[in-house]
């Protein structure tokens, strides 16, 4: 474990908690893409099946359970509890255009053709594009609540920190996972546009305007 991976995990946890609390406190999921949250729940489900097969550390197990729990809780709040506030008219990204190619790629490009490894690879590829419905929704509505932009900032920061973690592990431990690195680079690049706006817009006004 190194400081970059730890900070990355905490940033990821912060993002997940920020979103869950935002929906719970405001009792509204306006401006939130339910589709992205479903994709994240799918990412965690397919990646953390090894909870049932191997124990790595208390930290590892605890975080996985928290991630899965919060992901499903968020999906529940969006599609069940606060369904009335779900903005389905703007959450129209065709997720099948993500899931199908990612599923096919996971079969073609993986480290090992075993069910667990293919599901892990699927989750890595899916995570890199899972935020697209949310970014698409924001571009359609033309704005995002400040708290949502903090959520996106920490979510984007987490994988950027993981990229540094992978450089660190390659240099100090000789570890190298090409699939995770390439997907992580793609994932982080998708946030670049948002990062630019997040930083340049600062805290001006209550809503951030993102160009379409």
């Amino acid at each position: 474990m190194n400081i970059f991976r730890l900070t990355g995990d905490l940033s990821h946890l912060a993002a997940i908690i920020i979103l869950l609390l935002k929906i719970w406190k405001t009792r509204s999921c306006a401006g939130i893409s339910g589709k992205s949250q479903v994709l994240f729940a799918l990412v965690f489900t397919t990646r953390y099946l090894d909870l049932l097969t191997s124990f790595i550390s208390l930290y590892n197990t605890t975080m996985k359970i928290i991630y899965i729990g919060c992901a499903y809780a968020t999906v529940y709040l969006i599609y069940m509890k606060f369904k009335a506030t779900y903005d389905g008219n703007h959450d129209t990204f065709r997720v099948e255009f993500l899931v199908v190619p990612v599923g096919g790629l996971a079969f073609l490009v993986n480290h090992d053709f075993s069910p667990l490894e293919i599901l892990w690879t699927f989750s890595i590829y899916l995570e890199s594009v899972a935020i697209l419905p949310q970014l698409f929704m924001i571009s359609k509505t033309g704005e995002a609540e400040t708290i949502t932009t903090h959520y996106l900032f920490f979510l984007g920061l987490y994988r950027a920190l993981y990229l540094i973690n992978w450089i660190w592990r390659f240099y100090f431990e000789g570890f190298f996972d090409m699939i995770a690195i390439v997907a992580g680079v793609v994932q982080t690049i998708l946030y670049c546009d948002f990062f630019y706006l997040y930083v340049t817009k600062g805290e001006s006004g209550s809503n951030k305007i993102n160009p379409a």
Partner: peptide, 10 residues
């Protein structure tokens, strides 16, 4: 060669 790390990352 690409050394596969054990799945110790989240």
């Amino acid at each position: 060669i690409l050394k596969k790390k054990k799945k110790d990352e989240l």
